[in-house]
Simulated assay, not measured.
Amino acid sequence: MAIINRTPDSFYDAGRTYDLDAAVQACADAVAAGADWIDIGGQPFAPGTPLTPREEAERVLPVIEAVRHQSEIILSADTFNPEVAALSIKAGANAINDTSGLSNPDMAAVIAGSDAHLIITHSLAPPRTPWPAPRYRDISLEVADFLKRKIDQAIALGVAEEQILLDPGHDLNKNTLHSLELTRRLEHITSLGFPVLASVSNKDFIGETLGKDRNERVEGSLAAAVICVMKGARIFRMHNVAPAVAALHLTEAVLGWRKPLELRHNMTSPEPGSTEDLP
């Protein structure tokens, strides 16, 4: 899942894809680099002044419409606003990435009335609201319990089980030790039986662990993604698409899920009588 933020204040790209043409081109570049999915956002989860639904829609919808016109790639809208979600689905989005963890129950009604998927993310604070010094007794079990409750709520409101995906929410209202432990014990989330999204790309838990600034975290992001594969995650929200595709394809090949693109190394039979016949 490639990340395209049409915001002037996104934590990683700092407005690089805020211009509409730049956002659409970034989507095309992500497809060319091997992305299977593009997540398009109009405002960050981080604390700040919320946009109105109209302002957010004006950022997100033109990108969804333009990319849908060009490609059949999976598209999601990164939004916690039900009105923006409904408009995004109408424009061609296949999924809604709700980083607020279904904080607005109306989001379930939007999904229930569509063929779109809903990504339910663990977070504690309301959207764009700080939650200083979060505390957990057992991070992985508490996140799993939160997601179970949100799954039950979504189903009760009409969302089908097959529409639901989960995101444990690395770094969202969590410190670095929390995110590391959540990664180490991710099987508590993947064992819930729903597809799990790992959104680990360039997160602060990687930067703080390695002492790296935001533009120096690619290697750590790839390592975190591979660990999450081994723990059962199946969707990966990544900024640096080409390196992520390479790392994840190799991991899939090792696990037997993907065949190598070519087989040449030590595949040629030796000529009769050559030294290669010697033991």
Score class of each variant (00 low, 15 high):
Asp204Phe: 08
Arg237Leu: 04
Glu58Ala: 09
Leu75Asp: 00
Leu180Val: 12
Asp167Glu: 04
Arg258Ile: 03
Ala66Pro: 03
Phe45Val: 14
Ile74Met: 14
Asp9Asn: 13
Gly169Phe: 08
Thr52Met: 09
Arg217Lys: 13
Arg185Pro: 02
Asn175Gln: 10
Ser123Gly: 13
Gly101Leu: 07
Thr190Leu: 07
Ala233Val: 02
Leu87Ser: 15
Val143Gly: 11
Ala247His: 09
Gln25Tyr: 02
Asn202Ser: 14
Ile111Asp: 10
Gln43Ser: 15
Pro82His: 12
Val31Phe: 10
Glu262His: 04
Gly220Ile: 01
Pro272Trp: 11
Phe80Glu: 11
Asn81Val: 13
Lys174Leu: 13
Ala125Pro: 04
Gly211Met: 08
Ile96His: 06
Ile119Pro: 01
Ala112Asp: 07
Pro82Leu: 09
Gly48Pro: 00
Ile227Thr: 03
Asn266Ile: 00
Ala46Pro: 01
Ala156Glu: 10
Leu75Ser: 04
Ala91Val: 08
Phe45Pro: 11
Trp257Glu: 14
Pro105Glu: 03
Arg184Trp: 08
Ser114Glu: 12
Leu186Thr: 10
Leu172Trp: 08
Ala93Trp: 06
Ala85Asn: 05
Ala233Asn: 02
Arg128Phe: 09
Met107Phe: 07
Ile89Asp: 04
Gln43Pro: 02
Ala116Thr: 11
Ala242Ile: 00
Arg54Thr: 14
His249Lys: 09
Asp9Arg: 10
Asp204Val: 04
Asn104Phe: 07
Arg264Glu: 10
Ala95Val: 04
Ile4Pro: 07
Asn104Ile: 05
Asn173Phe: 09
Trp37Gly: 07
Glu262Cys: 01
Ala14Asn: 00
Phe11Thr: 02
Leu197Phe: 08
Ala242Asp: 02
Thr79Val: 03
His239Pro: 05
Asp98Ala: 01
Ile73Thr: 11
Ser123His: 12
Tyr136Gly: 11
Arg214Asp: 14
Asp19Ser: 07
Leu118His: 05
Glu208Pro: 05
Ala93Leu: 06
Val241Tyr: 04
Leu182Ser: 09
Ala116Arg: 10
Lys174Asn: 13
Gly232Arg: 03
Lys148Arg: 15
Asp29Pro: 00
Asn173Asp: 15
Ser191Phe: 11
Gly42Glu: 01
Asp106Arg: 15
Ala95Asp: 06
Ala86Phe: 03
Thr7Asp: 03
His178Val: 14
Ala91His: 09
Pro62Gly: 08
Ile89Asn: 04
Gly273Ala: 06
Leu157Arg: 13
Ile139Glu: 11
Ala46Ser: 14
Phe194Tyr: 12
Arg149Ser: 13
Glu65Arg: 10
Cys27Tyr: 01
Pro195Gln: 14
Ser71Ala: 09
Gly15Phe: 00
Pro62Tyr: 06
Ala23Ser: 06
Thr79Gln: 08
Leu192Phe: 08
